[in-house]
């Protein structure tokens, strides 16, 4: 069920500092607006405090607590991190807010001018060259390194969460830490069997019972490899749009993708091998020494 979108005037009324507001996108719980705060442009995120229809008061309280905790985590991670590869927080601090009589959480992030990679894939324009793909993998590796340095796994790296910007100094930005996971904290979701991730980009180890004890930064490396592969080839290496969820998960566990070199013969062999290696089912087979990877990539591999 998608978010109940509030009236834009109600949003403006809830935030008097906003001088202009344009709706951008909406998902299950979240809507994003482009806002002007005087001369400054930012992205406002509002999250609906919603509960499952028919839930008891107690269940509703649990669901709201989980949702608040998840959003708070996302914001506190972003507060702690200030690198160009990850989206930065904006001027509006996270707070509960009543919009048109309904409960939401809201905060702002910097507004990234550009397009997300999924849009670019769907537009089916010219495929990115190797220079661009190297910049992309470097961005993702640096973001993963930074997050893991704080014991955090992003868990939702995918083309739709990566923005391609027009800034050569900052060509890509990783967004949306909504389901990020801190290894030294207890799970936010009460249901330990629930897997918070986008199925097409889920690392195989996340499909096992007790996955919270098994995952580490290499789960993010897997999703980063998938994203680069998909952006390079404009084809998801494991899933087709028509696949049912069962097939998608089976493929994540069992299917070996075609070598990237087979679908992008113009790319350097070592670069393709690196991306292929990041897609291995076993965590130990993904090259996990991020420092070494970054050094090699920056040196031209």
């Amino acid at each position: 069920m998608p978010i109940t979108l509030p009236d834009p005037n109600d949003v403006k009324a809830a935030f008097p500092v906003i001088t202009d507001l344009t709706f951008l996108a909406a998902g299950g719980f979240k809507a994003v607006y482009k806002i002007a705060l005087g001369s400054k442009i930012e992205a406002l995120k509002i999250i609906e405090m919603r509960s499952t229809p028919g839930a008891s008061a107690e269940e509703k309280a649990i669901e709201w607590t989980e949702l608040r905790a998840r959003v708070s985590r996302e914001v506190s991670v972003l507060k702690d991190i200030n690198i160009p590869e990850l989206v930065r927080l904006g001027a509006i601090e996270l707070a509960p807010v009543l919009i048109g009589g309904k409960d939401y959480l809201a905060y702002s992030e910097e507004f990234i001018i550009g397009k997300d990679l999924m849009k670019l894939i769907r537009e089916n324009g010219p495929r990115p060259d190797e220079v661009e793909l190297r910049a992309l993998i470097l961005t993702l590796l640096k973001a993963i390194r930074e997050l893991w340095g704080k014991g955090i796994i992003h868990r939702d790296i995918k083309p739709a969460n990566i923005m391609k910007t027009e800034d050569p100094a900052r060509p890509f930005v990783l967004m949306d830490l909504g389901i990020a996971f801190a290894v030294d904290e207890t799970g936010i979701t009460g249901n330990s069997a629930a897997i918070p991730a986008t199925m097409k980009y889920i690392a195989p180890e996340m499909l096992f019972r007790g996955f919270r004890n098994m995952i580490d930064w290499r789960s993010d490396l897997y999703a980063a490899g998938l994203s680069v592969y998909e952006y390079a080839a404009f084809i998801h290496p494991l899933a087709r749009g028509s696949d049912d969820p069962g097939t998608t998960l089976y493929n994540a566990l069992k299917k070996t993708p075609k070598f990237l070199k087979e679908v992008r013969q113009d790319l350097n062999g070592k670069f393709c091998t690196l991306i292929d290696q990041m897609l291995k089912k076993k965590q130990a087979l993904r090259p996990s020494n991020i420092e070494m990877l970054i050094k090699n990539l920056e040196a031209g591999l």
Binding site: Q277, L285, P287, S288, N289, M292
Partner: peptide
Amino acid sequence: NYALSLNG
């Protein structure tokens, strides 16, 4: 050998 080498 393979897995450890891959990991640097």
